[in-house]
Design a protein around this nucleic acid. Structure first.
Lengths: 196, 196
DNA sequence: AAATTTACTGTCAGTATTGACAGTAAATTT
DNA sequence: AAATTTACTGTCAATACTGACAGTAAATTT
C-alpha cells in the first residue's frame, strides 16, 4: 500500500543521466547538480533514490558492468547461430543502436577512477574478462584448425580495437578515422584464414 | 638582473605533477592542492608560475601535445633508417622507458574534456593526425607494392591498438592482456606480407 | 475520508576548492 | 650595502559541492 514506488525506474533514469555527465565531465567532474539537471530532477531527490555520491558512483559501476554483461550475452547468441568472426565484428561495430557508445567511455573513466573507488576493480575486471572470453570462444569455434594462441591474440585485438571506436568522437575527427578500427578488425580476422 | 627565474623548470615540474594527478583522479578530479602536493610545492606558488586553473589545463594540453609530437618525431627517425612496420611496432610497444605511459591516458582524458575546454580540440586533433600520418608513411614505405588503402588501415589499426596499451593497467589485469595489443599489431602487420 | 507510504522540494550547515593579494625571503646587479 | 627582481608563504573571501533533514504533495489502501 501507499504511493507506488518508482525507485527502479528513477534509478535507471538517474544512472543514465550520470553516464551522460561522465562522458562530458569525467567521473569527478560530474557533480550531483549536473546529474540532477540532466535527469530533470532536483538534487535532493536523486540522493533520496540513490544515496550519497559514493553510493551513486558504485551504482554507476554496477550499471555499466550490467550493461556490459548484457552486451556480452548479446554477442554469445551470435556464437550459437553462426560462430563466425565476421558476425562478431559486425555485431560489435555495426549493430545500429544496439551498443550504447557511452558505455565504453564510462567503462574507461571508471577504470581510471579505481584508485578512488577500489571496490570497482573486481567487477570491472571480471566483466572485461567475460567479454574477452566470449570473443575468444567465437574465434576458436570459427577457426577450429587455427592455432589457439593466434585465436586468442586476434580476439583480444578485435576487442581492443572495439574499445577505441568512440575514443576520438569529441575531436570530431575526419570520417576516415571512424571506420579505421572496424576495417583493422576485419584485417586482423583475415590472418586466421587458410593461406592458399 | 634580480633573482634568476626558474619558471621554465618549475612549469615543467608542475605539469609533470599535473599529469600524474590526471592519471589518478581525472582532469576535474585533479585539484590544485593535489597537483601542488605532488610537485612538492605550495598551492599559491603553482598559481604564481602557471596562472589559474583554466590556464593550467590549457598548459597541460600544450605539454601533452608537445610530448606527443616529440614521440612522433622519434618515430620518424625509425622511418629514415629502416622504414619497416616491425620497427614501428617495436618503437611503439617495446621502447623501454622512451614512451611515457601517462601520455596516452592524459591525452584521452583531455579529449574527453573538450566540451569544457574547446580550445584543446584543434591541437589535440592535429597532433593525432600527425601521429597517424607518420605511421601511414612508414607502412607505405615499408610495403610499396601493397594496396594504399590497406596500408592506411593497418597503420590506423596499429596506432589504435597502441592507444589501448595502458588502458587497463589500473585493473591489474592478468599478464596475458599486457602484450595482447602488441601481438595483435604484429598480426595486423602480417596482412601486408606477400601471400605465397 | 483517514491512514499510510513514497515522491518530491526547500533550505541550511559543513566542507572543499579556487582566486586573490599582501608580505617575506632569496638571489642577482650596481 | 642598496636596489631590484623573482621565488615563495600565509591567509582570507568567494564560490561550489555535498550531506542532512524537515516538510509538503501525491498516490494508494482500508
Amino acid at each position: 500500500m501507499g504511493r507506488p514506488s518508482v525507485q527502479d525506474q528513477r534509478k535507471k533514469e538517474v544512472l543514465d543521466a550520470f553516464m551522460s555527465c561522465v562522458v562530458r565531465y569525467g567521473v569527478e567532474g560530474a557533480t550531483l547538480e549536473h546529474i540532477a539537471a540532466q535527469a530533470g530532477l532536483k538534487r535532493p531527490l536523486i540522493r533520496h533514490h540513490l544515496g550519497n555520491r559514493k553510493a551513486m558512483v558504485l551504482a554507476l559501476g554496477e550499471h555499466v558492468v550490467e550493461t556490459f554483461s548484457k552486451q556480452t550475452e548479446t554477442l554469445r547468441v551470435a556464437l550459437d547461430e553462426h560462430p563466425d568472426v565476421r558476425n562478431l565484428i559486425e555485431a560489435l561495430f555495426n549493430s545500429d543502436g544496439e551498443m550504447d557508445p557511452r558505455i565504453n567511455i564510462c567503462y574507461q573513466a571508471l577504470v581510471n577512477s579505481i584508485e578512488i573507488y577500489p571496490e570497482l576493480r573486481k567487477p570491472l575486471l571480471e566483466s572485461m574478462e567475460a567479454f574477452y572470453k566470449v570473443a575468444i570462444d567465437i574465434v576458436l569455434a570459427s577457426h577450429p584448425k587455427a592455432d589457439k594462441q593466434a585465436c586468442e591474440i586476434v580476439a583480444h585485438g578485435i576487442i581492443n580495437l572495439f574499445i577505441t571506436t568512440d575514443a576520438f568522437v569529441p575531436l570530431k575527427p575526419p570520417k576516415t578515422w571512424g571506420y579505421s578500427s572496424y576495417f583493422a578488425a576485419l584485417k586482423l580476422a583475415e590472418t586466421l584464414e587458410e593461406k592458399t
